[in-house]
Design a protein around this nucleic acid. Structure first.
Lengths: 247, 247
DNA sequence: GTCGGTACACTGGTCTGACCAGTAGCCTGC
DNA sequence: GCAGGCTACTGGTCAGACCAGTGTACCGAC
């Protein structure tokens, strides 16, 4: 016989539960509106402060958004990786997760995405990739910010070709966290134009591998590119984390 | 010249910011206590409802916990993957992420973890793995629940040997979501004893590969095991997602 | 001395009622 | 027809109150 720990259930938690249930069950679709706080307070039979605390929780989870003065009430939002990004970012800052671990994780995700993309790509996908590469080529002359945007777009196209939304989201999240950690270092890089040309050549090779359905090759190129670009920012004693994936 | 969209900053948001800052900067360590709500209300110069909404947000992020009656005040929590788990779970339920995508993602993570574990394992790690395997062997006769716990423990040991906390956490999260999606199906499996024996044999092979530092072999075994165990629950038209990783 | 109970001063959880700034839509006056 | 203001709402915030529950310090019984 086992007993479960008993925890009192707060009123606002049950409000959260019910609204969350309505959202995930599809009874409330993104774009639809919740009743106003005063109306909810009547429907749930609780005070306004309870309703407000519940809405704060849902808002922190990026599930709703409310704006003062809007007579249509709080808006139900579409599921987004923003909350995921926030929690992973917090974990990365707090939980002794360093740049090396993040990069290793990115090599795993990016490598797998490239592998899958090379296997699953259609002719349309190849067209999309070629366009993304072209945008990068144009970006070189439009400054680093522009180039960086095109670079991110290329990786997103790859991730989408892999047909796995989890891969898309996690890559986006991890990439964001990595960039936040080293943005100041990148800002002061001196030889950015030559860096951009190198990256461009890398991506062209990747496209060739994907076109040739060479999954292993594409994956290796992706991991190697990450290593070449970022390894210098990783403390030397952590390089052991990165190299096993390159073999 | 570019302008930024202006959004009003709510009072409770600035309270959240300050407390969050204190936590991530290390000024407030896990286990330490925040002042009581009434005290915070004085320090921040805002009303109690504002304080409470801020605390709700921090609590939803698993950063603090408060208990009525505790004269020491709200407790600062250590960073945990619980919040990450919640946001990923929500995303998986909402964002047309099916079992196939989850399993594919697990194959990627688990495969990489095994690859790294085989490369990085020490003698101590091998001892830990052997113990985990022994626990599984004993679990067979103690019912499915016990065996399942030991199985999870084995995978956690593997993930920890890979030396990447991100791998540990994401695997834990994805595994949790997968199990929640198919727990009802597993409940009704008839031949669970023979299933357990099969899994046990699988894990013994994995241990051999890790001992032999055969990263590729261990990774392949892990992915194959996931495929063998779960592919039957994946709609046939989604099998194309799983198979490329097995090659 | 230790142990059990009790009183008290606190905690967070909830409710009520109020005020404010801001919004959207109506509605007037031209 | 339309610009301008009016109005009835919205969410954000505050103040004050009450309650159930907790931890602790105290105190009496043994």
């Amino acid at each position: 016989m086992r007993f479960e720990p008993v925890a009192p259930v707060r009123a606002y938690e049950r409000v959260v539960e019910q609204i969350e249930q309505a959202v995930v069950s599809g009874a409330l679709k993104p774009g639809e509106r919740l009743p106003s706080e005063r109306e909810l307070m009547i429907q749930f039979g609780v005070g306004r402060s309870t309703i407000r605390e519940a809405l704060r929780v849902l808002q922190a989870a990026e599930m709703i958004r409310s704006r003062p003065g809007d007579p249509r009430g709080p808006e139900v939002l579409a599921a987004s990786p923003v909350a995921l990004h926030r929690s992973m970012h917090r974990l990365a800052r707090a939980d002794h997760v360093g740049l090396a671990e993040l990069l290793q994780f990115r090599m795993i995700l990016d490598g797998s995405a490239h592998l899958l993309a090379a296997e699953l790509r259609t002719e349309d996908d190849l067209t999309g990739l070629a366009e993304a590469l072209e945008a990068m080529r144009e970006g070189v002359s439009h400054g680093y910010a522009e180039f960086s945007r095109a670079d991110v777009a290329f990786h997103e196209v790859i991730a989408r070709i892999s047909r796995n939304p989890l891969l898309v989201v996690s890559e986006e999240v991890v990439r964001g966290v990595v960039l936040e950690l080293i943005e100041d270092k990148l800002e002061h890089a001196s030889n950015r134009t030559s860096l951009m040309r190198t990256w461009l050549a890398h991506h062209a090779e990747v496209l060739d591998a994907v076109r040739a359905s060479d999954g292993a090759g594409a994956a290796h190129l992706a991991k190697q590119a990450l290593y070449d670009n970022y390894a210098e920012y990783v403390p030397a004693e952590h390089h052991a984390l990165l190299t096993p994936l390159l073999r």
